[in-house]
Design a protein around this nucleic acid. Structure first.
Length: 1066
RNA sequence: GGGCCAAUAGCUCAAUUAGGUCGAGCGCCACUCUGAUAAGGUGGAGGCUCUCGGUUCAAAUCCGAGUUGGCCCA
């Protein structure tokens, strides 16, 4: 980019982004930037790997934008930042997608297709998705190491998981055991609790009577899963609850039923009993040990029938709901399982992994459990055990991927027993700093406290194989071998394999055996839960252990940054794995952001159709504007509501920046301005106040931004920058500096303005670069040419320069701007446009600061307010034409007047007095004061009130009133003369614009004013008009551009003709 | 059903981090200005601060209960 070269008239984000992409390519901008910081202090950022199914949505886009902004910021601060992106590529979601693609129904289809082929398909699918995601992320300018992402399917990464798991095993934290787990019967695998999605479904609702032994009657239980009745082992009660035995009558027959006292009415109504009487009342405690008959004893001959089974026990999970007694099957439910094991009861589960009854289920063998519900219900009916049967709507868990209803069964699974190191986990949390902090101390801590052992095994194909070998004749954890690295694998297995070449997926390791002594070990066929994959990312990112060159220096991560759903996901899995394997938390800082919601605050979801694709946003407003919008949201915990409006506003701000940047270029070019020669330091003596002011504002902006960035509030930093660019640079500085730049003569003042705006723009784009990398790049390139780095992203983060800091000046100008604003307001109240001069403007100052500011800038104020004179009323003086009122201070009134404070406040605010003193005021509010009460100085501040005929507006700073501006808008001939002349000028200018005339183009002007008085007044300013509109002469124009105007009810005819055109036609 | 978070103008958010008259940007409407501007300026409308209780002279703010939304768990 050539320095101060021509740039687009309009900010066109798409063309600009395209140019910048090409430019980055051309100069290897990313590679240079990384290289530039290679000697800097290391900063280890770890990317939470997105899952490779589907494309990037607004949430992922937000997440990556945040990562990008912080990485860029850290780089600018000098850090050598690790920026390796990652992808989570294993797991059931991909398997099910591939199954869908191939039209598979179940595992049998996969086995027939061949494991090896299926794994290849999964790999292809994941690779394909990865490419799509990479393209998405690149498209909005995220700079990470795209050529070298970590992929959880690579042998190096899988080895990292093996290593971590083996470390946990060394610490004795790996265990194989019976557990009740959620099983997807279609996928035929255990799934994690957080992979269970709850949906409202209709299920059976049955009340079953279990006949008591050695006692008349039965206990009643309720369940929605008739298929678990065959595995019933005990019934649970709450020992402290009151139960009743009732003799109930239906159709002339009587029976005794036991249920909780609170449930009696409900149960009898369910069973349509005609009448009942209470025959016994007792606590749950007293019922413990009662024995009952299994209601399907004949149908399921293998049912649990040991001595201690089929009895009533106490359990914590009982509530006085439905019947107050709970059917318990330790072979199914998680709580039942735990209690059953405590009680030493057998764990009976007659259901296989595919949800089909085994031969242990007797009559129901080979039936799918959900389909057996009907037959079981009928059998219970026939056995006289059914009290009532119906259906119920409730939430029931489904497989997150294939939507099949899950079942609870007990199977053999491999666990990392993190409950054994619970204290260590809780301690390790303390070693991490979270933003926001409550996320750690509330949510995360609670979750960790209650986390159960981690079931890491899945009976699937597309995952990291468990590196566990067990003796051929047994498959428990007693004599297991856990392999940790590929080298070790190659050394120990009986087969000949190349550790460099082994892929490590299931098909490549399933057949490997290990022989030690007389024992041959075979591999456990399971693969890891996919959450284990990403849990090792902190060392997987470094390719550790196969590459140990960086681990010692970098680990643990300095920062991770993800959405709040990862509290239960990656934040947790990393803590668990880090602690189990290394005894440490693998990250030091966490920035936890929220989710991207739609414009109504609802979750974006495909089914609702409220999803906004990042592509669409980029198309509408450009990547920079989209990023700025996303980055303007609070990144700490709160969800973000998407807003097209806000994004459009960001584009407008960028347009403003573009215009500010574009404005000085032609002049700088013309004057051969060289920022390397004409530095700020060089022109220091020629700087005007407004230059010093904008430089001072720049310093406070930098200071504020740095502070906010370091506190992980990039949104507030951006707000400060936008405010600076839009309010201070564009709306004030550029306005003030325009005439200096128009000056055709070279002047010290002009050079000073160049140097100032150059510095301001140069630093502003550096500050903007992390947010809007494209537009910043183009502006930077145009400003600096070959004089600096090839890319703005190599710049250092702009530091505050003490020399230019000037808080006092910032305050002064703030006053002036407040006065100007108030003056404009007063003008409008007086009905006098800015085009018409006013006789005088009176500034009544409340303090010396205001006086100083006005005295130093009287000319500026006169000019901005188009006033013939500025009068200043000092703080200790009063302007005779004023009245006063009082403004009450509630913090003083409250304690003094108690509940009457509000009333007193109103009276004070409404009072109008001529002298601003307490006596007058007390007299005015005497009505509401009681005898012994007085108004003190602390309670009120006096406020000036506008007199008739003159418009006044208060001005202030940060909500505090600091004075009043009065505009005297009375007319004189002199003012009218100038006013009308300016009206004419304005209209001629508009007509020039309509003809598209060049600024320098000379014209001939014809002017006809209907009103003689006005015509005379205008004539007085003919010279002014001539000069302003570049008119060579006043005379009749024949072919010119002619228009009728109505000016303040006076009609005028104006015609103009370019002189050149007139000459040509002559 | 439980935990955590949020709720302030049509929208996005502030309100000086242990109460003291609730403000800004965007959008909208009107007026205005225009020789950098798809700009700028001024004004206006728009608020039972989600609801109900409590503490206090005084609550957006503190406490309790609920409602709605989000996340997580069951």
């Amino acid at each position: 980019m050539s320095r101060f070269g021509e740039v687009d008239d309009q900010y066109d984000p798409h063309a600009l982004e395209q140019r910048v992409f090409e430019y980055w390519d051309e100069v290897d901008a990313y590679e240079q930037t990384v290289e530039h910081r290679s000697d800097g202090e290391s900063f280890f950022f770890v990317d939470g790997p997105p899952y490779t199914s589907g494309s990037a949505h607004m949430g992922t886009t937000w997440n990556k934008s945040l990562k990008d902004v912080y990485i860029r910021f850290l780089r600018m601060q000098g850090y050598d930042v690790t920026d390796r992106p990652g992808y989570d590529m294993h797991g059931l979601p991909i398997e099910t997608k591939v199954e869908e693609r191939l039209g598979f129904e179940n595992k049998k289809d996969i086995e027939e297709f061949g494991e090896e082929n299926f794994i290849q398909e999964c790999k292809d699918y994941a690779d394909e998705q990865l490419e799509g995601l990479q393209d998405d992320f690149k498209s909005f300018g995220v700079w990470m190491d795209w050529d070298n992402p970590y992929r959880t399917v690579s042998p190096e990464y899988m080895e990292a998981a093996w290593w971590g798991f083996s470390k946990a095993a060394e610490r004795g934290l790996v265990e194989k055991g019976h557990r009740s787990i959620s099983q997807c019967p279609r996928c035929e695998t255990a799934i994690a609790n957080n992979e269970v999605e709850y949906e409202d479904v209709e299920d059976p609702s049955i009340y079953v009577k279990f006949d008591l032994e050695e006692r008349e009657g039965s206990v009643v239980i309720w369940t929605t899963t008739p298929w678990t009745i065959p595995a019933n082992t005990f019934v649970a009660v709450d020992p402290d609850l009151t139960y009743q035995g009732v003799r109930a009558e239906r159709d002339g027959e009587e029976e005794v039923l036991y249920v909780a006292e609170e449930c009696v009415e409900g149960v009898l109504k369910e069973g349509r009993y005609d009448d009942y009487e209470i025959v016994e009342e007792l606590t749950g405690e007293e019922m413990i040990g009662w024995e009952y008959e299994h209601p399907l004893a004949e149908e399921v001959p293998d049912h649990v029938d040991v001595d201690d089974a089929l009895q009533i026990y106490d359990a914590e999970y009982v509530e006085a709901d439905r019947t107050g007694l709970v059917h318990s099957a330790p072979g199914h439910g998680e709580e039942d399982f735990r209690r059953g094991r405590e009680l030493g009861l057998p764990i009976f589960c007659p259901v296989a992994g595919d949800g089909v009854y085994t031969d242990e289920a007797g009559k129901y063998e080979d039936q799918f459990v959900k389909e057996a519900d009907e037959e079981i219900t009928a059998d219970l009916e026939d056995n006289g055990a059914m009290l009532s049967s119906g259906t119920v709507h409730h939430n029931y868990g489904h497989c997150w991927r294939c939507d099949t209803g899950i079942i609870q069964i007990v199977t053999d699974q491999w666990f990392i027993t993190i409950t054994d190191v619970k204290e260590e986990l809780l301690d390790n949390i303390e070693d991490s700093e979270w933003h926001p902090q409550w996320a750690r101390d509330n949510r995360f801590r609670d979750f960790v406290q209650e986390a159960p052992d981690w079931n890491v095994s899945r009976q699937r194909y597309w995952g990291i194989p468990l590196p566990v070998w067990t003796p051929e004749d047994r498959d428990d954890d007693e004599d297991m071998i856990v392999v940790s690295e590929r080298e070790e694998l190659a050394e120990r297995v009986d087969q000949d394999i190349d550790p460099e070449a082994v892929d490590l997926h299931k098909d490549t390791v399933d057949d490997l055996t290990i022989t030690e002594g007389d024992t041959t070990y075979t591999r456990v066929p399971d693969v890891f839960d996919v959450w284990l994959d990403s849990s090792v990312a902190s060392w997987g990112t470094l390719d550790f252990p196969s590459d140990d060159s960086q681990f010692d220096e970098l680990w643990p991560a300095d920062l991770i940054l993800e959405a709040h759903d990862q509290t239960r996901g990656w934040f947790w899995s990393q803590l668990g794995m880090g602690t189990a394997a290394l005894g440490e938390i693998p990250y030091e800082q966490v920035l936890m952001h929220g989710h991207a919601l739609d414009e109504d605050g609802r979750k974006m979801s495909k089914s609702v159709g409220n999803v906004v694709e990042p592509d669409t946003a980029i198309e509408r407003h450009g990547s920079d504007a989209m990023r700025m919008f996303l980055l303007s949201a609070n990144p700490q915990g709160d969800d973000m509501r998407f807003s097209w409006d806000e994004m459009g506003t960001m584009e407008n701000h960028l347009r403003t920046l573009w215009n500010v940047f574009r404005f000085p270029l032609p002049y700088m070019r013309l004057d051969d301005f060289d920022p390397q020669q004409t530095t700020l330091e060089e022109v220091d003596d020629d700087l005007e106040l407004v230059d010093e002011w904008i430089l001072a504002r720049l310093q406070s902006t930098k200071s504020e931004m740095t502070e906010q960035f370091e506190a992980f509030r990039q949104d507030r930093a951006l707000e400060a920058l936008v405010d600076f660019v839009v309010e201070d640079v564009s709306r004030f500085y550029v306005q003030a500096v325009r005439e200096r730049m128009w000056d055709e003569e070279d002047s010290a003042s002009k050079q000073a303005a160049y140097a100032t705006i150059y510095r301001v723009l140069r630093e502003s784009v550096a500050l903007l670069a992390p947010y809007a990398p494209f537009v910043s790049e183009e502006i930077y390139g145009t400003l600096t040419g070959d004089a600096e780095h090839d890319t703005v992203h190599m710049c250092d983060w702009p530091a505050v320069e003490e020399y230019w800091v000037d808080d006092q000046l910032e305050d002064d100008v703030a006053f002036l701007r407040a006065i100007e604003e108030a003056g404009a307001n007063a003008r409008q109240q007086a009905g006098r446009k800015l085009r018409w001069p006013v006789q005088r403007v009176v500034v009544a100052a409340d303090d010396e600061r205001v006086v100083e500011a006005v005295e130093r800038h009287t000319d500026l104020l006169e000019d901005r307010l188009n006033a013939r004179s500025i009068e200043l009323v000092a703080p200790d003086e009063r302007w005779g034409e004023l009245e006063y009122s009082a403004q009450a201070d509630m913090s003083e009134l409250g304690p003094a007047f108690g509940d009457r404070a509000g009333q007193v406040m109103n009276a004070l605010n409404e009072a109008r007095i001529e002298e601003p003193n307490l006596e007058s005021l007390e007299a005015a509010v005497a009505d509401v004061l009681e005898d012994d009460e007085a108004v003190t100085e602390e309670m009120v501040s006096f406020v000036t009130e506008t007199p008739e005929g003159i418009a006044g507006t208060a001005f202030g700073l940060n909500g505090d009133d600091r004075g009043v501006v009065y505009v005297d808008a009375s007319l004189t001939d002199d003012i009218e003369s100038e006013g009308y002349a300016r009206e004419v000028i304005r209209r001629v200018q508009e007509m020039r614009k309509e003809l598209d005339l060049d600024v320098e183009e000379r014209i001939t002007l014809e002017l006809e004013i209907a009103d003689d008085r006005v015509a005379d007044l205008v004539e007085e300013h003919e010279g002014l008009i001539r000069e302003e509109v570049r008119a060579d002469e006043f005379r009749a124009v024949e072919d010119g551009h002619r228009k009728e105007w109505d000016v303040e009810d006076v009609s005028m005819t104006i015609a103009i003709e370019p002189v050149a055109a007139a000459e040509a036609s002559d």
